[in-house]
Nucleic acid binder design. Structure first.
Lengths: 66, 66
DNA sequence: CCAATAAGTAAAACAAACTTTACATTTTGT
DNA sequence: ACAAAATGTAAAGTTTGTTTTACTTATTGG
């Protein structure tokens, strides 16, 4: 699964720390997410989508290996 | 977080086992999801959405306590 | 150039998702 | 009513998300 969190974050001009604070996770979680190191929970995905005013599907996309 | 998986499943006329097989999880995972016992991964949410031809946001919804 | 801020990374610990097995209860079709 | 299928539930175990701490490497602004 891939995501465009880094782009959304740039559009909204937020640091990883800013974003982490907004959705109540650690900065490392944001960093690891952007690096594609793991798959977040659906609650986290919904929170990110809400903050960015996008649907979850606009931010996250399934890949072949999923 | 709440979801309407049970409704979608009814619309598509699938048993919990059918659905579990389609997205490669155990039947208990489907059962627990419908019962709101836990929050699925975003990959699982995307797979469900794809199967039901809906967006993740149409199936899952944040609640106050999230 | 220097200092501050932001980002990358890693390991240990903890919390939560998910599986497996197993059994009980409910629903459905005949 | 009976049998079969579907659903509910639960406990133990494995895997994976997430936090915390900490240190290093970029990037930015003055």
């Amino acid at each position: 699964m891939k995501n465009n969190i880094k782009v959304q974050r740039a559009i909204h001009n937020l640091t990883q720390q800013d974003l982490a604070d907004r959705i109540s996770v650690s900065r490392q979680t944001i960093n690891a997410l952007e690096a594609g190191k793991y798959v977040p929970s659906t609650v986290l995905a919904l929170k990110l989508a809400k903050l960015f005013d996008k649907t979850v599907n606009e931010i996250f996309e399934l890949e072949a290996e999923d």
